[in-house]
Amino acid sequence: MQKNNSIELKELSILYNDLKIGLEAVSKASFDVKNGEFISIVGPSGCGKSTILKVISDTLDLSYSETRGDVKVLGSSPKIAREQRKIGFVFQKPTLLQWRNLEKNVSLPLEIIGLNKIEIKKRVKKLLKMVELEKYASYHPDQLSGGMQQKVSIARALAYDPEILLMDEPFGALDEINRRKMNDELLSVWKETGKTIVFVTHSIEEAIYLSERIIVLTKQPGRIKKIINVDLPYPRKNELGSMKFYKYINQIRLLLENEEEIV
């Protein structure tokens, strides 16, 4: 069982100490993410969802915060996993380099790794094809819609073939229709690549539509309220209006609404 886990969190607490009062962002969170699993984290804003991703990817600014507890990524520390480039990160904003065209944006991590040009070209072509943007290779980010930009950023995160994909509300800025479309495309990417995906969102529906399991966090400090198995067959397009889907929505909504009683 141990070997099948991509990520293991044991009693992870995160404290912000820049305010001198030692604000606790996350409190004693423990969960495992299995290899190849699609897991979502939902919770009210400020519950530390994004901060957990930062800890897993070893990008948290430790001059303002400290962590307690144990985090293992692919059996080692997050730092080692980062140094071995095992983690791809997709931010809420596409975070593309505006002076580079799409092709060059996707090739950025590969250039840094130091791959040869022919190999880079081959990989970038494949990635752009996967996100259906091969026609736009020479376009610059400002010529694309927000959804397309986010697809580029996903392709870029996949470029160096990391084993884990961390996504921090990647479709939060999109309208409902585009978001659904992006969800479907993300699922097809997941199916094609078999990556482990940890997906942070504030949309309950999106979490149910996408993930195998959902971690529900409480308000600050974020504690794990419940981990829910979503027992719905993929693709879930047909499940959208179903009773079962609705029940999941209700269950999570109740968990989020009633949290005051428990805290």
Binding site: K54, S57, D58, T59, D61, R82, E83, Q84, R85, I87, G88, F89, F91, K93, T95, L108, P109, I112, I113, Y160
Partner: peptide, 13 residues
């Protein structure tokens, strides 16, 4: 944006 630094850090640049 801090995200750019995080991005390059995740590439171990």
């Amino acid at each position: 944006s801090a995200n750019y630094f995080a991005l390059f850090s995740s590439y171990n640049a």
